[in-house]
């Protein structure tokens, strides 16, 4: 009976893993296909779709734009979100709980609603620059991820350490930088990673804000699939998977995935 149970568990585990990983494997395989259509299994193998990436200017521009927006919005959220989280944790502002919930609320709203709201707001404020509008919207999108992990990290942080650093001759900002930041680094890294990904693959908000010349990667990818459904998109997806794995390895070296996961 115990043997059967154990076998059954292993079977379910295997199926779940297969369910999660097969699509990725299929994309990886197709990216090396020699066929011009999105066919599985591929009739033969080649690197032609990777080579064609070099000529896909609009695609590379979209990758560059998305990377910029994701990195900048994550950085801005890290700074603002951490300062806000400190104020909330230390009870420096009235209604701290409500503020914490409010800062996390974009995560609970449908992206479509946010997108329409940003479009309307940008018009009303006369903000015509697509890049700035995208950046502001993405700060709002990434903020909940930062707030959640930083608040969790701060709840375990002893603020007497900041006082100790001040009494040892560091100003308040320098005390935060030399004592608070290194101690909640795992929270920054895991929150930052989630925030970066949330911004990088955001579709429903960005779709309302992009214009013809300024397109983020998810939107450009979907365009490409609609217009010329060849394995170029598979090649770019494969590169993104590679990039993600590289990022995870760096994070592991930096703070350890275990510490990140425990936040």
């Amino acid at each position: 009976m115990a043997l059967f149970g154990s076998l059954f568990c292993r079977l379910v585990l295997g199926l779940v893993i297969a369910f999660l990983f097969l699509p990725i494997l299929i994309v990886l395989t197709v990216s090396f296909s020699s066929s011009a259509v999105f066919a599985f299994p591929p009739p033969g193998f080649s690197l032609r779709w990777y080579a064609s990436l070099g000529k896909a200017d609009s695609m590379l521009q979209a990758v560059w734009l998305s990377t910029q927006i994701a990195a900048l919005s994550t950085a801005i959220s890290l700074v603002l979100g951490t300062l806000c989280a400190i104020a909330i944790t230390r009870g420096m502002i009235p209604g701290a709980k409500a503020v914490a919930t409010f800062m996390a609320s974009p995560l609970m709203l449908p992206g479509l609603v946010l997108g329409i709201a940003f479009l309307q707001a940008a018009r009303d404020f006369g903000l015509r620059d697509t890049y700035s509008t995208l950046l502001i919207a993405h700060v709002v999108i990434t903020m909940p991820f930062i707030m959640r992990t930083v608040l969790a990290s701060l709840s375990l942080f002893d603020f007497a350490m900041v006082d100790a650093a001040r009494m040892l001759g560091r100003s308040y900002p320098a005390a935060l930088w030399t004592v608070l930041v290194p101690n909640i680094l795992p929270g920054f890294v895991s929150g930052g990673l989630f925030a970066f990904i949330a911004s990088f693959d955001n579709y429903p908000v960005s779709i309302f804000l992009v214009d013809v010349r300024t397109k983020t990667l998810p939107i450009q990818l979907l365009n490409q699939v609609e217009m010329s459904p060849d394995p170029t998109v598979a090649a770019i997806s494969a590169l993104l998977i590679l990039g993600t794995i590289a990022a995870l390895i760096v994070c592991d070296r930096l703070v350890g995935l275990k510490r990140m996961a425990s936040i």
Partner: peptide
């Protein structure tokens, strides 16, 4: 001014 804190607040 030096302070020894209740829970020491070591880094």
């Amino acid at each position: 001014i030096g302070v020894v804190f209740q829970n020491y607040a070591l880094f």
